[in-house]
Design a protein around this nucleic acid. Structure first.
Lengths: 208, 208, 208, 208
DNA sequence: AATGAATGAGTGTTCATTCAT
DNA sequence: TATGAATGAACACTCATTCAT
């Protein structure tokens, strides 16, 4: 989790580009090198191995997500607002950097290296824990319906978002992801909030 | 979509075995051949290419799903019952043949071959259409809440199920998938049904 | 230590050829393949890895040596005759297959793989034990001088032979190895035998 | 054979360290640079190529050996004493700088570059000539038995020493090399000296 | 005197596929 | 219906070396 050099950041960025355009199974050293305009060995000056590159990529991803969690929590609103804001800005993030979506869904491939698989699982577990904590807090505070267990609510909230992202990625990003996401989040509001109907809060814009 | 020979069926079955045990990225001709106990060229007697094999595998999958749809619809109950029954039996199917779960989530890899990608998308589109039709029928019949569009309801129903399956696969199938699925489906009942509370129908057992 | 196929034997033979001509550090898959006249992947049909190839080569070597030991012991003569016969025929073997000499002296390179290093050491230990046993038997029988410990005698016998082989290999095999060996073995006779002077036995010719 | 700078000497010393710890086949520019704590290109300030480095290393080696010869000859004693003293102090040298042993036995690798190979051979030839001269002088003076040719005596003296060093290096230097060497040298005394039994001279300690 | 960034050639290895038998 | 033997293309990675700074 150390600081990345400029070049390392560039490599990760271009790698995400390769993933976005050709899928993660085509994220080869050769393809990355070609994208950057150098030969393959050049990459090894910046990352000691492909594993290290992917590892740094996942770290980057985790940091991004953590930052989003922090920013969302720093804003006003109750727990349900926080969850909705997190998910919304996540979708915005994806729509800006579509490769992230493909990375998220690439567990199958990370599965190949046990260390990356472990990291991916750890990463997902942490995010799940964050969301779960918000849900439970909302249930205790009475803003989220409590007749369904938090465990199930997590699936009900996160599952549709994931599926939406997947549909978006698979339809060549034909629709506006955040826009469709809003409708989904409104539905969440209707389904899960204990507040009487009434338009839910707008999403605060974040610094990044 | 032609009839498969006994040997072809065996190859597909063993291939699913390889996927279940080692992931789809390890579904190589060599691994399949080893599993069956023949040499690699032998496979080419039965399928002209790896593509053809995967193609047949997807056809198989589609047929399975279609059969499940038919059986579910043949049973009594309203639309919401049908949807719940379909999803429940899907989970049972997965828990019996875990490889199916990995195939479902392997779109990334099928993506490599445009023909397979198209087929995968077509397949998913068809299933989505079936579910959507049920949802819309339920909304018209007044059994499913109509204040959320069918489009969103589809995400809200299918997304959590997919995520549950993924969690199950990624935790080495540590929990009982159909059992956890039931709790999720109960939650769906609470969220989506217009019927007053009351235990939802039990799931009919199907022939297969 | 299983049976080798014809092709495997050929590969080992050609590999020895590569070693003889270009040194063991140039024993690359590419060079072997080129020598045989196939592409590199073809070799992997016959040996699963380069390690397996080298492993089989060492096994072959050990078998050869063991056979020589057996044949030598089957001949008449006392222990000192056996030792001398073993060494002489070893030199003949080397002069026929010069690559063997380079393999013998290639421990440095085998050292790279811990499994091969272990095998090489095991192999040398076994041969040393065989020679030592002969020396000690000779000392007990009174045919070999006993005022020097067997341990030292082993060095005194084997060391010069090794050095002679090395000189021969390093001078591009300019001299007749067995011929020069004979003179060395005669010297051994003078130095180590308790028998009165007199020409030592001639070397029986072996079947192979 | 020009003077080496301080930095060049350090590089050679660290290179010997790399050889001692990881073998000569791991003597890469990268490993040397890492050992010294600089980047790879830095080495090229001090040696124009890896060849030049190895070349200087061999020169160093030769100089060391020559110095030992001179010092040994400067001491009292007859030829057989000189030979024994030379060998003994060589063993001491090796036991102090184990890398030297690995260099000595790395001819295989030097073989790759014809210039280094030539140098190595030249070096060995010169040492051989020195030893041979001593042997022949001893034979003329009547202190070394003359019924075996000097050529063979060289093998009989140098071969066992080399083999001992090799055993020592290959057993991770488990035994005391000079100590075991003494016993070997005592055996030489018994075998080669014409002097009647009686403890051979002790080894003079040298200045270095 | 040293570095950051790069390279051409080469390493062992795996892949889907072909072909003669 | 299967095998033994092979292949072209690709894979991640290492090597000694160069060059601008």
């Amino acid at each position: 989790m150390q600081e990345l050099t400029k070049r390392q950041q560039e490599i990760i960025a271009k790698s995400l580009g390769v993933i976005a355009e050709r899928g993660i199974q085509n994220l080869t050293i050769k393809n990355i090198a070609r994208e950057i305009g150098v030969t393959e060995p050049a990459l090894y000056r910046h990352f000691p191995s492909k594993f290290a590159l992917l590892d740094a990529m996942l770290d980057d991803l985790e940091e991004d997500t953590d930052r989003l969690f922090r920013e969302v929590k720093a804003n006003a609103g109750d727990d349900i607002d926080h969850i909705r804001a997190f998910l919304y800005h996540r979708l915005v993030q994806f729509s800006v950097t579509p490769a992230l979506a493909r990375v998220i869904f690439a567990e199958e491939i990370f599965q190949d290296d046990p260390r990356l698989a472990a990291k991916m699982i750890h990463l997902q577990r942490r995010h799940r824990a964050q969301i779960m904590a918000m849900i439970e807090a909302g249930q205790r505070a009475g803003t989220i319906r409590a007749d369904i267990e938090a465990q199930e609510l997590f699936l009900i909230i996160f599952g549709p978002i994931r599926l939406l992202i997947k549909q978006w990625a698979h339809t060549d990003r034909i629709f506006d992801l955040p826009e469709r996401g809003k409708r989904l989040l409104d539905a969440f509001h209707k389904l899960l909030s204990t507040r009487l109907a009434g338009s839910p809060k707008a999403f605060p814009s974040l610094t990044q």
